[in-house]
């Protein structure tokens, strides 16, 4: 863990000059960002949309991506970092192919969250904030997913799963595991 933390420092020493956002960002990413800019009164207001589109294409926001987006929006990378790290759904670390967001809020807490968490952790062998060694699954918590009438709930890559039981959660993860195998 300590080794990983020290790696952050050299990467943040990349200077903005080493990246040219026009080459770094794809034309599709640039066009989404410029469309958002055209709606807003300032370039910085496209920040969330820009982070989301780059994450959609690349899976996460690397330091280089952050610098490129900041350049494109004509703001400092420090300012964009303040925005990026503010949000739960912007990943500033590499995540797995499937990102599990397990709802840990009150309705799920009252209807079996503890056991579901235990089942997922046992099944995948990882805890919150971790990714399986094969890079398939990342486990994260999420504040209330708004599925309180069908709790416990989780969200995986934008898909919502409701009324989870110990059995159903394993079967969902198992199904995704097999999909992952086929993709290889």
């Amino acid at each position: 863990m300590n080794n990983n933390n020290t790696e952050i420092i050299p990467s943040m020493m990349i200077t903005d000059e080493e990246i040219d956002f026009r080459q770094y960002l794809s034309s599709e990413e640039l066009s989404v960002i410029e469309h958002e800019v055209s709606i807003m009164e300032t370039r910085e207001a496209a920040g969330i949309e820009a982070l989301k589109v780059v994450q959609k294409h690349r899976g996460w926001i690397s330091d280089n991506s952050l610098i490129a987006i900041a350049q494109c929006l004509q703001i400092s990378s420090a300012q964009l970092e303040g925005v990026a790290t503010f949000y739960n759904l912007i990943y500033r670390q590499k995540v797995g192919h499937y990102v599990i967001h397990l709802c840990d809020s009150i309705s799920c807490h009252l209807t079996g969250y503890d056991e579901i968490l235990k089942v997922i952790q046992t099944y995948l062998g990882i805890g919150y904030g971790q990714t399986t060694p094969d890079g398939e699954f990342t486990l994260l918590s999420n504040v209330c997913l708004g599925s309180c009438d069908k709790s416990p709930a989780m969200m995986i890559n934008g898909q919502h799963y409701h009324s989870l039981t110990n059995e159903s959660v394993v079967s969902i993860l198992n199904g995704l595991s097999q999909n992952a195998g086929e993709n290889v």
Partner: peptide
């Protein structure tokens, strides 16, 4: 045995995501 195939039961994987943090995509 509700454990995914290939999962190391000895302990939680604490490295996973961070190692590749700086590899460019």
């Amino acid at each position: 045995h509700l454990v995914r195939e290939g999962t190391n039961q000895e302990g939680l994987n604490l490295e996973g995501i961070n190692q590749e943090r700086d590899s460019d995509e």
